[in-house]
Amino acid sequence: MDTIRWEEGKLKIIDQTKLPTEEIILDIENIEDCRRAIKNLQVRGAPAIGDAAAFGMVLGLKEIQAENFEDFYEAFLENKRFLSSSRPTAVNLFWALDRMEDVVLKNAEMTLPEIRCLLEKEAMNIAEEDAATCRKIGENGAALLRDGMSILTHCNAGRLATARYGTALAPVYVAEEQGKRIHVYADETRPLLQGARLTAYELKEAGVDVTVITDSMAAYVMKNMRVDFVIVGCDRVAANGDTANKIGTYGVALLAKAHGIPFYVAGPFSTIDMDTPTGREILIEERPPEEITHGFGKRTVPVGVEVLNPAFDVTDHALITGFITEKGIICPPYKEGFEAALRGMKRGNERC
């Protein structure tokens, strides 16, 4: 099934914390369970988080018992604040919630049942647009790939991180559809092993040649194996091109630079935050220390030892060869490129 599916008033998701050994579908029936699923990484990946949050707002409507617009809107904003507190770094979460609020504000003169119907429709639109956007990212990125190439990726930015196709893996899927055979090196991605558990799982299911390596093997593989490209996803892109992605991405970018390997970031325009000037302003989520101290089912760190567990790091724009977006491939200077592309969305932006 798709990573996220709306069916009979319920949000159905694949519980990604159980993969790859168990394939469990969760029925999310209320806003509290939706927030918990986002917070606990049962649904993860910037686009998928935005999709889930939009449907979470629809689920939250069940608990709003308002008779006038003012009371309805106040309760709606409380639900929005509740979901927005789940994870701080991925901008798609806030982008999707803002889209849902825009529906309410633009239709304030309609009846509350009509507004509720429009909100459900908007959530479905967000998920459908996510799938279409990722497909376009795949088509644009596949143009960079030739038969027999190898890419290295970090974390999971495939179909499990989106409504369909993925971002960083979308070019691989489209290239495979075009008859090109692509080999993928997947960093395991400590401490939660999204690369080993999720990227390898979905690529294997799709019949794509994949090799899992530990994070510390990336330099060895770049030096001794053939790596043609590095393609990663993104959780927030600042106006100057600085990019927040899963912890370890910055190190991979430095290694790619040292070995002369192109380093691309794949993501939708909704991940570009023009209100954030540089990466210094991006809030980095701190995850529980238990993800490291008990990462393999038993304690692996001595009691009393301090643990640092940032979920993301920021890659400087100078290390990024280009951005693969649904509008085209954007090369430096990024701020001018983003602004130009935003101004000319109807005609696209093929800068590279």
Rank of each mutant, 00 (worst) to 15 (best):
T3L: 11
I4H: 01
W6Q: 01
G9A: 05
I13M: 05
I13T: 04
L26E: 13
I28M: 09
N30Q: 09
A37T: 02
K39S: 13
L41K: 10
V43W: 08
P47M: 13
A53E: 11
L59G: 07
L61P: 07
K62I: 09
Y73Q: 13
A75H: 12
L77N: 15
R87G: 01
T89H: 01
N92G: 01
W95T: 07
A96T: 09
D98W: 12
D98Y: 04
R99N: 05
M100N: 09
V103Y: 08
V104S: 06
V104R: 09
K106G: 04
P113M: 06
E114K: 13
A123N: 04
A123R: 02
L145Q: 11
D147T: 13
G148I: 02
L152A: 01
R159W: 14
T162V: 12
A163W: 00
V172G: 02
V174H: 05
V174S: 00
A175L: 04
A175P: 11
Q178F: 10
G179L: 11
I182M: 01
A186E: 05
E188W: 07
R190N: 05
R190V: 03
Q194T: 06
R197M: 08
T199M: 11
D209K: 14
V210M: 08
V212C: 11
V212A: 05
D215N: 09
M217V: 12
A218N: 02
N224K: 15
F229C: 03
C234Y: 02
A238N: 08
G241K: 05
T243W: 01
N245R: 10
I247Q: 03
V252E: 07
A253L: 06
L255E: 10
A258R: 15
I261E: 02
P262S: 01
P262G: 00
A266F: 12
G267Q: 09
F269E: 06
D273P: 15
D275R: 14
D275Y: 10
P277S: 07
E281D: 14
L283I: 12
E285P: 13
P288K: 14
P289N: 11
E290A: 09
E291R: 13
I292N: 05
G297P: 10
R299N: 07
E306Q: 15
E306W: 07
E306A: 14
V307D: 00
N309M: 05
A311E: 10
D313I: 10
T315S: 13
I320R: 03
I324K: 06
C331V: 12
C331D: 05
E339H: 08
